[in-house]
Amino acid sequence: MLHLNVTDETSRLRAVLLGTAESCGPVPTPEEAYDPKSLEHILAGTYPKEEDMVKEMEAFAAVFEKYGVKVYRPKVFKDVNQIFSRDITFVIEDKLIKANILPDREIEIEAIKHVLDEIPQENIITPPEDVHIEGGDVMPYGDYIFIGTYSGADYSDYITARTNKAGVEFIRSLFPNKKVKSFELRKSNTIANENALHLDCCFQPVGKDMAIIHKNGFLVEEEYLWLVNFFGKEKVFEITKDEMYHMYSNVFSISPDVVVSERNFTRLNNWLREKGFTVEEIPYAEISKQEGLLRCSTMPLIRD
C-alpha cells in the first residue's frame, strides 16, 4: 500500500509519479494546442521532438535514482501526451485528488491505474463536475494551501484557465483545518509571456522559507505583495517576464536543500547556490516548449 503524505513542496521526497514522453503522438495542429506556448512552437515549426523529450525525462529520472526516490511511471498509451502528471492528480496530506481535466485527457488517468490501485480507495477523491482544479495550481505549504485561480466572468473563454472558484471552495471544504489562500492569475490564450497557465508558472516555494516569484503573473497586486511579505523580500527571487516565459519558477525540490533546475537557468541557479542549495541541473528546454517544466511533469506521492 502507498501511504500518501504531502504537506509542502520541499520536504524530503520518497515517492513520485514522473510522466513519460514515450509515444506522445504527432505534432498537434494549431487548433489542438492547449496553451499559447505550444501554439507558438507549432506555428514556428519548432515543436519538440519525442526523442529529445524522452532524453530529458530520463535525465530527471536519473536524479531521482541518485537520491533514492521511488519513481512510478504511467503506462504508455500510443500517441498520448503523458508528460504532465501534475495536471491529472495531486496529493495533499494523505488524499489524492483527481483533476476534472479536459475530456480528451481522461486516458491519462487510466495510465496510472497501477499507482491508484496501491492507494486506499477512501483516500482517492473525485471532485464534482463543476469543480475545475489542476495540480499546477495547488501548493500545500504547512498550515496553508496556496491555489492559483481565475474567477473572471469570461472564465470559459480561456482554455488556459484551469482552476475555478468552485475548485478553491472544494479544497477549502476538504481541508477545513488549513488556511486556503487563492491568487488570481493572468490568462492569455494567445500570448505566452502574458499567460500564467498555473500558479507554479509564476511562483514556487524553495527551501524552508524562500520563494521564486513573477509579479506580472498575478492579476491583483495586493495578492502578489501578500506573498512577498509572507516570505520576506530578501528571501524572494524575482524573475523577469522572459524568465517566466522560460519557466524559471517551475523547478522541483527533492528536499529542503536540493533543487532540480534547468541547466540554462544561470541567474536562478547561481542564486540558489549562493543560498546554500545543491542544484541538480538537467536539460529540459524542449519540454518547456509545451508550457510546462519540472514541477509540471512530477506528482509527489510521499514526502517526509
Rank of each mutant, 00 (worst) to 15 (best):
S151M: 13
K113W: 01
S38H: 03
D87C: 04
E31F: 04
T20P: 00
L174P: 02
N193I: 14
R86A: 14
G207C: 15
Y150S: 08
H214D: 12
C24V: 06
K235I: 01
F90S: 05
P26S: 07
E222Y: 02
A285C: 07
E50I: 03
I212R: 12
R267T: 08
E262M: 14
F64T: 05
I42K: 02
E51V: 04
S151V: 10
E118S: 08
F252M: 14
A44T: 11
N81P: 00
D143W: 00
G292N: 07
R186E: 10
M139H: 05
L197Q: 04
E58I: 07
M139P: 00
L2F: 02
E262P: 01
W226Y: 13
R303E: 09
H132C: 03
P36I: 06
E118T: 02
K78D: 15
N195H: 03
M53V: 13
Q204I: 04
P74A: 14
T240L: 13
V168R: 02
L293S: 10
E9S: 07
E50S: 04
L219D: 08
F265H: 11
D87H: 01
L293E: 11
T89K: 08
V27S: 11
F237K: 11
E118L: 15
I171Y: 02
F170H: 05
E134G: 02
L219P: 00
E184H: 10
N100G: 07
I171V: 15
M299I: 06
Y67H: 08
M247A: 07
E22K: 10
R12Y: 01
K55L: 11
N123W: 02
P283F: 06
T190V: 14
A33E: 06
V228Q: 15
H198S: 12
R12L: 09
H41N: 13
F170T: 09
T163H: 12
K165F: 07
T160H: 02
I83F: 06
N216I: 02
L301N: 06
P30F: 02
T126W: 03
S255K: 03
V251S: 13
I125E: 10
E118A: 05
T266P: 00
T7A: 03
R12H: 12
T163F: 00
I112L: 09
M247K: 14
K165S: 10
Q290A: 06
D130P: 00
A59D: 08
K75H: 13
F277R: 13
L225Q: 15
M299A: 14
M210G: 09
D137E: 12
T10H: 01
Y47W: 08
A99D: 06
I302W: 00
S188C: 06
V6T: 14
V168G: 03
P26D: 13
T89F: 06
V168N: 03
S249K: 01
A161G: 04
A161V: 07
N123C: 13
I112Y: 00
V251K: 02
S173F: 01
K289C: 08
P205M: 15
T7D: 09
K289V: 05
D94G: 03
P128G: 12
N164Y: 05
E122H: 12
E129D: 13
